[in-house]
């Protein structure tokens, strides 16, 4: 609804969880509606990817295959969530145009729907990671509770990215093509299937400067190392989240009334 204040838009959209949660789940189901496997495909495809990468690169990197599979699994799930929030968000508003044009609800409902969709996908992929943890005898300690704030950080960061790239996609649609190329690059410079410590030098530095690395570490340390995330990771993730929040809210406040007119 374009005549709402920014605060009303955010508050009413957050309150309207029945809409975005239901539609997000519908999106997850619809993505594979013509298949027999349906939503089972999410954990299955994640398993295929994680196992294949672990077999291919585990030996090359000289890692223990069981530990490496869990390491890749956690990295894959977190990276897929963040990458989805960036690459698919460009068309959030245009894909919801029919609803935006016809129903007076807050515009923030749509980024919430998109972020929830990737969150549901991530939860389905987590089934694979859980199976890997059980199969490879990884014992969780009390430090695993660190993933509670980690999930909150990740959701807020993902929501900011979704909204940010949804606005950018509305005003600068040409950037969509650049982003998909950039995400491919980001995939290689993020330590999903390699250890930053093994290579050293520039590559490790790039990995340390990459906020996604730290979001992945936020999950890996409590789950795989049995300890809290390092201070640098906490600073980088909290900093990235706050920066994304401020930038996105400022941009949203400046553009939200005219988003529909740009679609």
């Amino acid at each position: 609804m374009m005549n709402m204040s920014l605060f009303d838009d955010l508050a009413s959209s957050l309150k309207n969880w029945r809409f975005w949660a239901r539609f997000a789940w519908q999106d997850v189901v619809n993505a594979n509606i013509r298949t027999h496997a349906g939503i089972v495909l999410y954990p299955v495809l994640a398993a295929i990817w994680i196992v294949t990468i672990s077999i291919l690169f585990g030996d090359i990197l000289g890692a223990d295959r069981d530990d490496f599979m869990a390491y890749v699994g956690v990295g894959y799930v977190v990276f897929t969530f963040i990458s989805g929030c960036i690459t698919a968000s460009y068309s959030v508003f245009s894909r919801n145009l029919k609803i935006i044009q016809n129903v007076p609800i807050g515009i923030m409902n749509f980024p919430l729907r998109e972020t929830s969709r990737f969150l549901f996908q991530m939860l389905l992929q987590c089934i694979t990671v859980a199976i890997i943890f059980v199969a490879t005898d990884i014992n969780l300690t009390l430090q695993a509770f660190w993933i509670i704030p980690a999930v909150i950080f990740l959701i807020i960061f993902g929501l900011c990215l979704t909204l940010l790239f949804a606005i950018i996609g509305t005003y600068l649609p040409d950037l969509a093509a650049l982003t998909s190329s950039f995400m491919r690059l980001l995939f290689f410079i993020t330590p999903i299937w390699w250890y930053p410590g093994l290579r050293g030098g520039t590559r490790a530095l790039i990995a340390d400067m990459n906020p996604i690395t730290h979001f992945i570490r936020l999950f890996r340390y409590p789950l795989l190392e049995g300890g809290p995330p390092p201070p640098l990771t906490l600073i980088m993730t909290a900093g990235s989240m706050c920066l994304a929040l401020v930038v996105t809210l400022c941009l949203f406040a400046a553009t939200r009334r005219h988003i529909l007119l740009r679609l």
């Binding site: 029945r18 239901r22 539609f23 519908q26 129903v103």
Partner: peptide, 22 residues
């Protein structure tokens, strides 16, 4: 054409519309 999913039934679409309206 507001009915968001033509593959869903009338009942399911009403449920979705209900969700839109909170």
């Amino acid at each position: 054409t507001i009915f968001s999913n033509p593959h869903l039934t009338g009942v399911d679409n009403i449920k979705l519309l209900g969700a839109i309206c909170g």
